[in-house]
Design a protein around this nucleic acid. Structure first.
Lengths: 149, 149
DNA sequence: CAAGCACTTTACGTTAACGTAAACCTCGGC
DNA sequence: GCCGAGGTTTACGTTAACGTAAAGTGCTTG
């Protein structure tokens, strides 16, 4: 109930998923955030859904943008950083050379960030292993059976 | 000049590195943070250096704790989460079974978090590849030679 | 001994990313 | 016709993680 990875056809009843739209509440449930969060992202320039009257209508593209935004967040990027990439991506077709060069710079930056994080994860993993094994040792020393996950 | 990974003997002049101590300013330079940050971490219960008079004296163990703390931060953990692990780690030798079980839970939690981040990084990497290749296409379409990183 | 430099405490300021509350519209169902 | 469920705007509140400024302490160096 988190997100659909498989064929969307089953859920849309065979409709071309380009036409599938979402309310703010639907998106909120899908990604387990509050509507307030989604409105905030719009205010910050990360989303720009259509309106029917006053009500926001989110299309497939909006859903993807939100997904990417949340992924970026989990990786520790600020909304400003995320916007920088997302907006330039959208402006690409008519982007001038200068803008595109800048985009490539930003991308290289993010990439370096990811590399550092990978290394951090590796190291952190080892630390966790260490702490855990020590904890198990102490536990067995107390005559307690630690859970073998 | 960021951090020493190789033999510390050269830098300590052969002293057993257990005796090597640091001032707050030294640590700050080593890890590229401000003294304010280090004091804040102490206030949050992540460090507890000795004092000589009023001045803080950091030992090797303190340095390691700071290193782990900053690594945790880069991975998006809050100071409270980091403290939870670090403090329990220190309290381990006399920790009761209940506490240790709790520690194992926390560790499993962090581990799950790391797994999610790994997947996020993989996906984000693909996105970056995609954006970059599109940017290069557009650039070459403009007759500009994109830099071959 | 005065100057300067690194350290200290105290305390208020700041930023990002939302939470929360109030007051309003609007639409389908009974 | 009214009610509840969901949507909307506006605006003030909150939390984490420091920044920054003020005012004092202590060493050592010219």
């Amino acid at each position: 109930m988190t997100e659909s990875t498989a064929s969307d056809a089953a859920q849309t009843g065979g409709l071309p998923r380009q036409r599938r739209t979402f309310s703010i509440g639907e998106l909120a449930k899908i990604f387990e955030v509050t509507p307030r969060t989604i409105r905030f992202y719009e205010q910050e320039g990360l989303l720009a859904p259509e309106r029917r009257g006053q009500t926001r209508i989110y299309c497939e593209k909006d859903r993807v943008r939100l997904k990417l935004t949340l992924r970026g967040k989990r990786l520790g990027f600020s909304l400003a950083e995320i916007r920088e990439v997302v907006m330039m991506y959208d402006a690409m077709p008519d982007g001038n050379a200068r803008q595109l060069q800048r985009l490539l710079e930003i991308l290289a930056d993010k990439r370096a960030n990811l590399e550092r994080q990978l290394e951090d994860i590796r190291l952190m993993h080892k630390e966790l292993d260490d702490v855990e094994s020590r904890a198990r040792e102490v536990l067995s020393g107390l005559g307690v059976d630690p859970p073998r996950h």
